[in-house]
Amino acid sequence: MCLLLVLASCKDKEYLRIEVEKESGSMVSMRNFSRSSYKESGELEWRLKGDESYIFPKENKTIVYGFEFNQFEKGKVTSMMTGNRGEINHQTKTVVLEGKVRLKTNDGKFIESESLTYNLDEKTLFSEADVLVYSDGTTIRGKGLRADKSLNKFTIIQPKAITVGGSNPLKDKP
């Protein structure tokens, strides 16, 4: 009789099911990852967020899914870089982004590509994939890119189309 009362009073509980990890062999894996860096003055320098993060200490690398990297100056975002997957190599100080990569600066410039490499020491960008660069009313499509992180200086290796002002004729129509 007591057993029936205990079973009757039990309710189904909802449990959060953890999916299979996307990367194998990591020493540490985290969900809803966030890391920030501050200057000696206490001012926020950058913030990295991710849906999932996998840390590989032996390989000296970190892999982040749902990659979002914001750089700050005087408390304001100066650039935001996003991608589906980012691999940070701590030894070479490079970040390789893949899948819907986008870099946007606070002055309205942006890059879109399927892959992009960012060198943290040199503060330079590199890609061999198709890229779209928008700067000062001009849109350039091409293959391959070399640029500084602020997009003040950039080179499209194989330009395919350039639109100065107005609308982009290569943009997909609804």
Results as ranks from 00 to 15, higher is better:
residue 44 L to G: 05
residue 58 K to S: 05
residue 135 S to N: 15
residue 27 M to E: 07
residue 15 Y to F: 09
residue 30 M to L: 04
residue 114 E to T: 08
residue 67 F to P: 00
residue 121 D to V: 07
residue 110 F to P: 06
residue 86 G to V: 07
residue 36 S to C: 04
residue 120 L to W: 02
residue 115 S to E: 02
residue 120 L to E: 02
residue 130 D to S: 13
residue 143 K to N: 03
residue 130 D to K: 13
residue 35 R to D: 01
residue 104 K to L: 10
residue 112 E to H: 09
residue 132 L to F: 14
residue 58 K to D: 04
residue 16 L to A: 06
residue 61 K to S: 08
residue 101 V to D: 15
residue 22 K to F: 12
residue 14 E to D: 15
residue 94 T to Y: 02
residue 55 I to D: 08
residue 63 I to A: 12
residue 104 K to Y: 07
residue 29 S to A: 13
residue 36 S to V: 03
residue 22 K to I: 03
residue 77 V to I: 05
residue 80 M to T: 12
residue 68 E to Y: 11
residue 90 H to V: 00
residue 139 T to P: 00
residue 13 K to Q: 04
residue 40 E to V: 06
residue 34 S to G: 10
residue 134 Y to C: 11
residue 68 E to F: 05
residue 124 T to C: 13
residue 86 G to T: 09
residue 143 K to H: 03
residue 26 S to E: 02
residue 15 Y to Q: 14
residue 144 G to F: 04
residue 90 H to F: 02
residue 126 F to Y: 07
residue 76 K to L: 08
residue 142 G to S: 10
residue 143 K to C: 01
residue 77 V to M: 03
residue 85 R to P: 03
residue 84 N to V: 10
residue 14 E to K: 09
residue 95 V to R: 07
residue 128 E to A: 13
residue 103 L to Y: 15
residue 102 R to Q: 13
residue 72 F to Q: 01
residue 122 E to Y: 05
residue 65 Y to M: 00
residue 77 V to G: 07
residue 42 G to N: 01
residue 132 L to P: 09
residue 14 E to S: 08
residue 110 F to K: 13
residue 15 Y to T: 11
residue 114 E to L: 05
residue 102 R to G: 14
residue 80 M to S: 08
residue 67 F to D: 00
residue 133 V to N: 11
residue 47 R to I: 04
residue 19 E to T: 06
residue 76 K to Y: 05
residue 76 K to M: 05
residue 59 E to R: 14
residue 61 K to T: 08
residue 136 D to N: 14
residue 96 V to S: 09
residue 65 Y to W: 00
residue 74 K to I: 02
residue 103 L to R: 13
residue 129 A to K: 14
residue 93 K to I: 01
residue 39 K to V: 00
residue 22 K to Y: 12
residue 18 I to S: 11
residue 48 L to Y: 04
residue 97 L to Q: 07
